[in-house]
Design a protein around this nucleic acid. Structure first.
Lengths: 140, 140
DNA sequence: CTAAAAACCGATTCTGAGTCGAAGTTTCAG
DNA sequence: CTGAAACTTCGACTCAGAATCGGTTTTTAG
């Protein structure tokens, strides 16, 4: 085996520019076909239908989109929602750099969360309560 | 300008395999030179001194390492700690996919945090209290 | 059956990571 | 002061993934 010699990114779910843009379109308009997506795109950038098609295909291979044929065109739909993807990417990053101490994750998270308002903090507290019941008091 | 046509990864701080490995060594043994680092590495994989040097240089260019000459060799040291890097990567991911609703981040975070034990939850609650005082009750 | 639309199939470019040897430079010991 | 050892720099190359798109084949609806 040993296919690690030229692996690029150590994060498994890496995304290109266009890939993310297309994901955004599909999230906003599920079950669109390549032509529709391309048209939607033209407002921001000009890309040929072919490019869009092969990029969508790559996203299918990456298990980010699924597609089904309707009459003569594939319609694409996201497998993960935006927030699910966010969660998975966060998980990847944490898996990569997390040193075993939960505190490390926590402080990173709170630092990141500059923009948390009071409502958000309320929600977080509720989630903590929920988590406490769920685990019923375990330790590492 | 418009140099976006062939940009690879939409995450700015992408890391390669060897880069991460070298970072790990430098975190564990700060102020080592390339030779020492290479030697340390040989236990896990065999890489030439040149390769290690140019990879270290890339990490300096990426602002992850800094170096200073001691007599005739550069000694390398991390600019960001492991947990700082973790925090920055988390920030990048969130900036990329966060849809404006704090709840999205929060639920992602709690999903990620399978491994949070009671102590960690306590800590998180304290951080929330701290945050509340800091912001003094604002809303989005 | 046929024209249009879509899918499929390469080919090409660009970039970053990894790889390393060879040439150039610095340092220190004698 | 000089030369060998150690280190840095430079350039060249491979590999892989993203983006790009034109041409060919397949599918479908009228």
């Amino acid at each position: 085996m040993k296919r690690n010699r030229h692996a690029h990114n150590v994060l498994p779910n890496s995304l290109g520019e266009l890939e993310l843009t297309l994901l955004d379109v599909v999230w906003q308009m599920p079950d669109s076909d390549a032509r529709t997506i391309t048209a939607e795109l033209s407002d921001e950038r000009t890309v040929s239908l072919s490019t869009v098609q092969s990029t969508l295909e790559r996203l299918v291979r990456k298990n980010l989109l699924e597609r089904k044929k309707f009459s003569h065109a594939y319609r694409y739909r996201a497998i993960q929602s935006r927030s699910e993807l966010l969660g998975n990417l966060l998980k990847d990053v944490i898996k990569l750099l997390h040193d075993g101490k939960a505190a490390t994750i926590l402080s990173s998270f709170v630092n990141v969360a500059d923009r948390l308002d009071d409502n958000a903090l309320d929600e977080l507290e509720q989630l903590i309560q929920h988590k406490r019941k769920e685990t019923g008091g375990n330790r590492e």
